[in-house]
Amino acid sequence: MPTFTTSDGLSLHYTDEGAGLPVLCLAGLTRDGRDFDFVAPHLEGVRLIRLDYRGRGQSDWGDPATYQIPVEGRDAVELLNHLGIDKAAVLGTSRGGLIAMLLAATVKDRLLGVVLNDIGPEIAPEGLEVIKDYLGKPPLLKTHAEMAAARARVLTGFPNVPQERWLQEAQILFNETEDGLELTYDPRLREAVVEGGAQPVPDLWPLFDALSGLPLACIRGANSDLLSPATFAEMKKRRPDMVAVEVPDRGHIPFLDEPECLNALRRWLDMLR
Rank of each mutant, 00 (worst) to 15 (best):
L189Q: 13
L189T: 15
L189V: 11
L189D: 04
R190E: 08
R190K: 14
R190L: 00
R190C: 00
R190V: 01
R190D: 05
E191S: 01
E191D: 13
E191R: 04
A192S: 15
A192W: 11
V193G: 03
V193A: 12
V194S: 01
V194D: 01
V194F: 13
V194E: 03
V194R: 00
E195N: 12
E195A: 12
E195K: 08
E195M: 10
E195P: 11
G196Q: 04
G196Y: 09
G196P: 02
G196A: 09
G196H: 02
G196C: 05
G196T: 01
G197T: 07
G197Y: 10
G197D: 12
A198H: 14
A198M: 07
A198C: 05
A198K: 06
A198E: 12
Q199T: 14
Q199V: 09
Q199R: 13
P200R: 12
P200D: 09
V201F: 10
V201P: 04
V201W: 04
V201C: 10
P202M: 06
P202I: 00
P202C: 04
P202Y: 12
D203V: 08
D203P: 02
D203F: 09
D203I: 11
L204S: 15
L204R: 12
L204A: 13
L204F: 12
L204Y: 08
W205M: 04
W205A: 15
W205S: 07
W205Q: 08
P206Q: 11
P206I: 13
P206R: 12
P206G: 12
P206Y: 14
L207I: 06
L207W: 06
L207D: 11
F208E: 05
F208D: 08
F208P: 00
F208K: 03
F208W: 07
F208Y: 07
D209V: 13
D209I: 14
D209T: 07
D209G: 06
D209L: 15
A210N: 07
A210T: 01
A210F: 02
A210C: 14
A210K: 09
A210M: 07
A210Q: 09
A210R: 04
L211D: 07
S212W: 12
S212P: 10
G213H: 07
L214N: 02
L214G: 02
L214P: 00
L214I: 07
L214F: 09
P215M: 03
P215Q: 00
P215C: 03
P215L: 02
L216I: 08
L216H: 03
A217R: 00
A217Q: 01
C218H: 12
C218E: 09
C218F: 14
C218A: 09
I219H: 15
I219S: 15
I219F: 01
I219M: 15
R220S: 02
R220E: 05
R220K: 08
R220G: 10
R220L: 00
